[in-house]
Design a protein around this nucleic acid. Structure first.
Length: 232
DNA sequence: CGCCAGGCCGTGT
DNA sequence: ACACGGCATGGC
């Protein structure tokens, strides 16, 4: 069975968390004031620098569109202009409108009602929306709706790759494998709730990612430099 | 100036 | 089941 080596890999992932937590401290994510702002940010930050997302959010704020009602009332053309700084604005504008339409038609326009539905079915419903893939869905579930799910991203993928955390088996670098590995890493961790551990871990992943795990690695001063298995 | 960012989707093997 | 190109802008 391939389950033989998994606990070892999960342990190394938890070591990575501990190193990052010691180096960076509490992150208290997501950087937003309301659940709906989390959702907006989750869409807008897709393959996009957060700095650019902030400019888009500022435009939306000026347009009074940081709320469900505000975004619903904002014409598509205006929405496109607001979010233009963060790129892919045609697709992202349509996707955000589709989210609000779904919320209106199936949940009476209420984020509370959305959050009250069972997480498993909810995840599938989110994934069925245009412009929502696994990371966006999980970010919404965890940071906006308060469900206990891990979030993986490109930075974690690079960490797993460069620190040789994954087996070379096909599909091992997929998003789902990273999420399962994260679940396993904190499965019996008594230090905190899984919600907070998943929250912190993803935030720390982004923190170290921005500083050290870009396409071209910047390993000077990286808190993970002590891992002997690091390659590249 | 060129590279790249907190993905997702359609198409082709 | 993957690999790959397109989507778009702005920061560094």
């Amino acid at each position: 069975m391939k389950g033989r080596r998994r606990p070892e890999v999960a342990k190394r992932l938890r070591w990575i968390h501990d190193q990052l937590a010691a180096a960076y401290g509490p992150q208290h994510w997501w950087p937003a004031k309301t659940p709906f702002e989390v959702i907006l940010g989750a869409y807008l930050t897709q393959n996009t620098a957060w700095k650019a997302v902030e400019r888009s959010l500022a435009n939306l704020r000026a347009a009074g569109a940081l709320t469900v009602e505000g975004l619903r009332a904002l014409p598509l053309e205006d929405l496109r202009r607001c979010i233009q700084p963060s790129g892919f604005y045609t697709r992202k504008a349509a996707a955000l409108k589709a989210f609000v339409a779904m919320l209106d038609e199936e949940f009476g326009g209420s984020l509370k009602a959305l959050a009250a539905t069972p997480p498993a079915g909810l995840r599938d419903r989110l994934l069925a929306l245009p412009g929502v893939g696994p990371e966006t869905a999980d970010a919404i579930l965890l940071y906006a709706l308060g469900h206990v799910v891990p979030v993986a991203d490109e930075y974690l993928r690079r960490i797993a790759e460069r620190h040789r955390l994954q087996e070379v088996a096909s599909g091992s670098k997929s998003y789902g494998a990273l999420v399962e590995l994260t679940r396993e890493a904190f499965a019996d961790d008594p230090r905190d709730t899984h919600a907070r551990l998943f929250n912190e871990f993803h935030a720390l992943t982004v923190a170290v990612g921005k500083a050290h795990c870009r396409r071209t690695a910047q390993c000077e001063g990286c808190p993970l430099a002590g891992d002997l298995r690091y390659a590249k």
